[in-house]
Structure formats: C-alpha cells, structure tokens
Computed example of a mutant assay.
Amino acid sequence: MDWRRIDLNLLKVLAVMLEEQSVARCAERLFVSPSAVSHALAKLRQMFSDPLFVRTGGGMLPTARAQSLERSLSLLKAVLDVELEAGRVSAP
C-alpha cells in the first residue's frame, strides 16, 4: 500500500479509539459525530483487513491486530513529539 494515499486522519481516529474503546467517547474527543467515527473505522477495517474492534457489553475491545497497531502508533507519536519539540526549540 502506498502511504501517500493513506488519510493520516484515520490513524488519529484509531489512536483515540484504542484509548477510549467507545465510538461515542472517541467522537466526543475528536469533535466529530459518532457516524464520522464509524465511517473512519470502516475505512480502517478495509485498510488493515481486520475488524480492529469487537463490540461487547463493556465497549469496543481491540483485536490482536489493533493492539499491534497501538504499539506502532505509540512509536510514531513519540517520534513526531520529538520532531515537533525540536522545531519549537530551534525556531527563532
């Protein structure tokens, strides 16, 4: 898959869903509708060929694939945080 064709906003939805495990709470945090989160999840499921979350009485539990992606997203976020902070320090 060509990374240039990926909507990186979807990764933000995935990251928040992994934290919240609730479509409604995810939508609230991202200031979007639950429907928008559901549509993003559908795209993510297709992108990763995995359901990513399983609905239970207690919320949306991440699949093994989603848990694996959580580790990668954490690393990506850490790298971006370092780069953004370096930009703030060196800016005139």
Score class of each variant (00 low, 15 high):
Leu69Thr: 01
Ala91Phe: 12
Ala78Cys: 03
Met60Gly: 03
Val37Gln: 00
Ser35Leu: 12
Arg29Cys: 01
Ala27Lys: 08
Ser72Lys: 15
Val23Arg: 06
Arg25Asp: 12
Ala15Tyr: 00
Val37Cys: 01
Glu83Ile: 14
Ala27Met: 07
Gly58Lys: 14
Met47Thr: 10
Phe48Met: 04
Asn9Pro: 02
Leu18Gln: 02
Leu30Tyr: 03
Leu52Asn: 00
Glu83Leu: 15
Ala64Gln: 08
Met1Glu: 05
Asp2Pro: 11
Leu73Phe: 07
Arg71His: 08
Thr56Trp: 06
Leu8Gly: 06
Arg5Tyr: 08
Leu61Arg: 11
Val23Asp: 02
Gly59Arg: 00
Ser49Asp: 15
Cys26Arg: 05
Arg25His: 10
Leu10Trp: 06
Ile6Phe: 07
Gly59Gln: 00
Leu10His: 01
Arg65Ile: 12
Glu28Met: 11
Gly59Asp: 01
Val82Tyr: 05
Gly87Leu: 14
Val37Ser: 01
Ala91Gln: 13
Val54Glu: 03
Thr56Glu: 06
Ser22Gly: 07
Gln67Leu: 11
Pro34Ser: 11
Gly87Lys: 07
Val13Ala: 03
Phe53Gln: 06
Ala27Tyr: 02
Leu73Val: 02
Leu11Asp: 01
Thr63Lys: 02
Glu85Ala: 10
Gln21Val: 07
Asp81His: 12
Trp3Gly: 07
Arg65Met: 12
Leu73Cys: 13
Leu14Pro: 01
Ser90Gly: 06
Ala78Asp: 04
Asp7Met: 09
Val32Arg: 12
Arg25Ser: 13
Ser38Glu: 01
Ala42Tyr: 00
Arg29Gln: 06
Leu11Arg: 05
Ser33His: 09
Leu44Ser: 00
Asp50Tyr: 03
Leu80Cys: 08
Arg55His: 10
Glu19Ile: 10
Pro51Leu: 13
Leu76Cys: 10
Gly58Ile: 08
Pro34Cys: 10
Leu61Glu: 13
Glu83Val: 15
Leu76Thr: 12
Gly57Pro: 02
Glu70Phe: 08
Arg25Thr: 10
Met60Phe: 15
Ala66Thr: 02
Leu52Tyr: 00
Asp7His: 12
Met17Asp: 00
Pro51Ile: 13
Gly57Glu: 10
Ala27Ile: 03
Asp50Trp: 04
Arg45Thr: 09
Pro51Lys: 14
Gly58His: 08
Glu85Gly: 03
Leu75Lys: 12
Leu30Ser: 09
Arg65Asn: 11
Arg25Val: 10
Leu84Asp: 11
Arg45Cys: 04
Glu28Gln: 13
Cys26Asn: 08
Arg5Phe: 13
Arg88Trp: 07
Val89Phe: 06
Ala27Gln: 04
Leu11Gly: 05
Ser49Glu: 15
Val54Met: 08
Met47Arg: 10
Ala42Arg: 00
Leu41Gln: 00
Leu30His: 02
Gly58Ser: 12
Ser22Leu: 03
Leu75Met: 11
Glu70Cys: 05
Leu80Pro: 02
Val37Phe: 01
Ala86Val: 15
Leu84Met: 14
Leu69Val: 03
Ser90Ile: 15
Leu44Val: 04
Leu30Ile: 08
Ala27Arg: 09
Met17His: 01
Arg71Ala: 14
Asp81Val: 13
Leu18Met: 09
Leu75Val: 13
Ser72Phe: 14
Arg45His: 06
Leu61Ala: 12
